[in-house]
Simulated scan of single mutants.
Amino acid sequence: MKYSVEVTIEKPRNEVIKKLDNVDNMKHWQKGLASSEHISGTPGEVGAKMRLNYKMGKRNLTLIETITKRNLPNEFNGTYTAKGMHNIQENYFEETSEGNTKWISNCEFQPSSFMMKVMVFLMPGAFKKQSKQYMIDFKNFVEKGVSVAEEK
């Protein structure tokens, strides 16, 4: 399943990229992120791997991020692998004529388990909705300093 989502962030691209490129900021715009752990490679560079642990209600989800392309401030791509699912993301950042940043994310979900194939077939909108929500949460974090991190 492939789809694209986009959002315009009312901040200059260099400011957007600075916030996006800081792993400590992920908890502020990725709801449910419990922890992140560098696994291999040079952090933030092509080939680097990071384990991302999410708590979503009573479910725990672990993703392995692998950076596949880093051409900032224009492009950042990666793969995200979890049990039963492989996600390819291509992210593009464009400067608008107003001095804002347009973020375009092309996503491809490749289910590898029967259950995930069923979910992709029955609920394709849920995947797109989740991707868009992360983008909106990032926009709110960059523009207004709003964090989705839960108080501990």
Rank of each mutant, 00 (worst) to 15 (best):
P124T: 10
E37N: 13
K69W: 00
S97G: 08
G41F: 04
Q110N: 12
E108K: 13
M85V: 14
M85W: 03
L33R: 00
M123E: 03
H28D: 12
N100L: 07
K139G: 00
A82N: 06
D21V: 04
L63I: 05
S105D: 03
E95H: 08
K55W: 03
T68H: 06
Y92G: 02
L52V: 04
K139A: 00
N87Q: 13
Q133R: 14
M115L: 15
W103E: 02
P73H: 08
K55T: 11
D24V: 05
L52H: 03
K102C: 03
D21Q: 09
D24G: 05
N140W: 03
R51D: 07
F127I: 05
N91K: 11
S4G: 12
R70T: 09
F114L: 09
P43K: 02
V23Q: 08
Y134S: 04
V118S: 10
N60L: 05
E6I: 01
P111A: 01
T62L: 04
Q110F: 05
M1I: 10
F141N: 05
P124Q: 11
V120Y: 01
I9R: 04
I64V: 15
I136N: 00
V148F: 06
W103S: 01
L63G: 00
I64Y: 07
E37D: 12
I9T: 02
Y92V: 06
M85S: 11
N60H: 08
S113C: 03
Y134N: 14
L33Y: 01
L52N: 11
M119T: 08
K2N: 13
V16T: 00
H28I: 05
C107H: 14
E15G: 06
E10V: 07
H86Y: 09
P111M: 01
H28R: 12
P43L: 00
K27I: 12
E15H: 05
H38C: 06
K19S: 11
F93W: 04
V7I: 15
E143R: 07
N87G: 12
N140R: 03
R70P: 04
I17K: 01
T62D: 00
E90N: 14
N53E: 08
E98P: 01
D24L: 07
N22Y: 00
G47H: 13
S131N: 11
S112I: 10
K31I: 09
E108Y: 00
F121I: 10
N74M: 07
F141A: 06
T42V: 14
E90D: 14
L61R: 05
S147N: 09
H38Q: 15
L20V: 08
F141L: 04
